[in-house]
């Protein structure tokens, strides 16, 4: 019994290697439930779709072409510059910047604001999950 439990824990840790922390995983799981509701064939989020969301340009809230990369840069492991205020932004890549994608409240707040900046609307649950998988993969 003890052995089984230990094994379970070990495999849990392994599966989570490079994964999200428990509260972020909880957020991802709730996004999955939402995504499934509006798309029956939904299986899992996809970093490739997320990349397109992140790098494609749109006429944003200010009437000018903008993408997520306009503020966060094309290379997520480098610092970048805010396109509106010129303030520098620390790398978005959780590998270079371990604080990233660890606080659910912060992530929700910024996704809401930043989707509005670029897409003039909030992201759908599937879009949010896809883009988080993309950032996580960087």
């Amino acid at each position: 019994m003890k052995k089984q439990l230990a094994l379970l824990i070990v495999s849990g840790v392994l599966a989570n290697a490079g994964g999200f922390n428990p509260s972020m995983q909880g957020y991802i799981d709730s996004l999955k439930v939402e995504a499934k509701k509006s798309n029956n064939s939904f299986a899992d989020f996809n970093a490739k779709r997320g990349e397109l969301i992140f790098t494609s340009k749109h006429i944003g809230k200010r009437g000018r072409e903008i993408s997520c990369a306009s503020c966060h840069g094309a290379n997520l492991s480098l610092s970048s510059q805010n396109a509106f205020t010129n303030k520098s932004i620390e790398p978005l890549s959780p590998r270079t910047n371990p604080k990233r994608l660890t606080n659910v409240q912060d992530v929700q707040k910024w996704l809401k604001r930043n989707f509005n900046d670029v897409y003039k609307r909030e992201g759908t649950p599937q879009e949010k999950g896809d883009v988080l998988y993309y950032i996580k993969s960087k």
Partner: peptide
């Protein structure tokens, strides 16, 4: 006070809390 009452449209940005 005025600024804090309009954070959802803060210089065309969303700074709401």
């Amino acid at each position: 006070v005025k600024m804090m009452n309009t954070l959802d449209n803060h210089f065309k940005d969303d700074a709401s809390l």
